[in-house]
Amino acid sequence: MKVSKEVRDIAEEILRQGQVGGVLGLSSEHGHVGPHLFSSTDDLGTLVLEPRYMLAKVCRMILADFPGERLGVVARGCDERALIEMAKLGQVDLSRLDLIGVACSEAQARECACPHPYPRRIDVGEPVQGVAFADTECAQQASEQDLVARQAFWTHAFSRCIKCYGCRNVCPVCICAECSLEDASWVARGKISPEISFHLIRAFHVADKCVGCGACDAACPVDIPLTRLYAQMREKMKEMFGYEIGLDVTNKSPLTTTLEEAPLHGL
């Protein structure tokens, strides 16, 4: 594929220059694709871009374990937004990362209902228009169904949950050392399906951080369309506070600033 060839060329160049300890991306071997750290130019032949894995958490771990080194990473729009949100939370140091920015195709953007299908700097690919919230299934559901119907939809969806914690585990912005979902005072332990508090807590916890990468949807064994719920929260953040997630590292969430520092408009 042309795009992955271009990414390989750039990765080769950064590795040659020797500024990074490796380039994090995806490798395809024997038909299976998984995360891989390319540390020499020899193995770049296996670099691919699909299927997507959320690599931001891996970046965080590598940077933490190799404090002196820089890391290259192949990043789409959502990967970059995830890294920016992690940086806001003090989880990664963006200045130690060399991003190879990849713009997503229109088809991809539509599949993910992605509002920003490209990173700030695009090294490979052409930027396409993001999907407006109004055009998403989520907005459709909100406008077509009344509250009772929506509640029935979500109750049914959540009753399928098998409490695998996969949605949390893959999420680049679920990074608390102590997770409320594991706290018996919020969610009863050992019960399937978990109480609805499990899902509401997670929704609120990612409300001002969810970058819409879709990793949680993809990890959910019982096909709960979680991002549909979070997208509504994200839209509310925009409506109420004019706050957009993942675009600017200096722009802190209105939910974490105090009234003295920054009066909350719209409340």
Partner: peptide, 13 residues
Amino acid sequence: AKTHPLSQGRLCI
């Protein structure tokens, strides 16, 4: 593993 035909990128706890 997302390319796995049985588990398709999902796992249980």
